[in-house]
């Protein structure tokens, strides 16, 4: 019964073959087997969204599915957002708008926001809030997160954000930026 099983998953564009127990959640497989600790463990009941990853374009709670269920799927985690040391525009906008304090919710929020913008590049504020409804944040009060996502959508479309003038496009530097880029903020 305790036999492990081999699972093949495409993670952030890389084919990965791994060994896990059938009872291990995808979150446990990511964090404990693959040491991709960007996805966070919060409630383990689907309430907080800290473990959000994007599977075949759809955000899901990685704590609510088994690792074996991800076999053959394309899984995107926060570690895959940045290109090397160059932040994804969402990460950049989260820094500019100070959209995080403790940071536990941030990887999940980023992945929900990424899935939203991939599907709907020009969301309304209501659409952003609906898409982020499953990501709890106890620090920011959400407004800064919503502003960052709005601004990121504008930057991706080459627009300027009406509330913020010209959108700056510098790459983040400093500790927080580097940690975000590597998905290492614990």
């Amino acid at each position: 019964m305790a036999n492990k099983v081999i699972v093949e998953i495409n993670i952030n564009g890389d084919p990965v073959e791994l060994l896990c127990e059938p009872r291990q959640s995808l979150l446990e497989v990511l964090r404990d087997v693959l040491e991709l600790t960007g996805s966070k463990e919060g409630c383990l009941t689907g309430d907080c969204g800290a473990c959000t990853v994007v599977i075949d374009g759809r955000p899901v709670c990685s704590c609510l599915m088994l690792g074996v269920e991800a076999a053959g799927k394309n899984v995107a985690t926060v570690e895959g957002l940045a290109s090397g040391m160059s932040l994804h525009v969402l990460q950049q906008k989260f820094l500019e708008h100070a959209s995080l304090q403790c940071g536990i919710c941030t990887p999940g929020v980023l992945m929900s926001a990424k899935a939203l913008l991939d599907r709907n590049p020009n969301p309304t504020e209501a659409e952003i809030r609906y898409a982020l409804a499953g990501n709890l944040c106890r620090c920011t009060g959400y407004d800064k997160i919503v502003r960052a996502v709005t601004d990121a959508a504008a930057a991706l479309a080459g627009r300027t954000h009406p509330a913020h003038g010209t959108v700056p496009s510098e790459t983040a530097s400093g500790m927080a930026g580097e940690m975000l880029a590597k998905g290492e903020a614990k």
Binding site: I55, L64, A133
Partner: peptide, 9 residues
């Protein structure tokens, strides 16, 4: 029902 992440599962 529930959240976007739960509704996808």
């Amino acid at each position: 029902a529930a959240t976007p992440q739960v509704r996808n599962l």
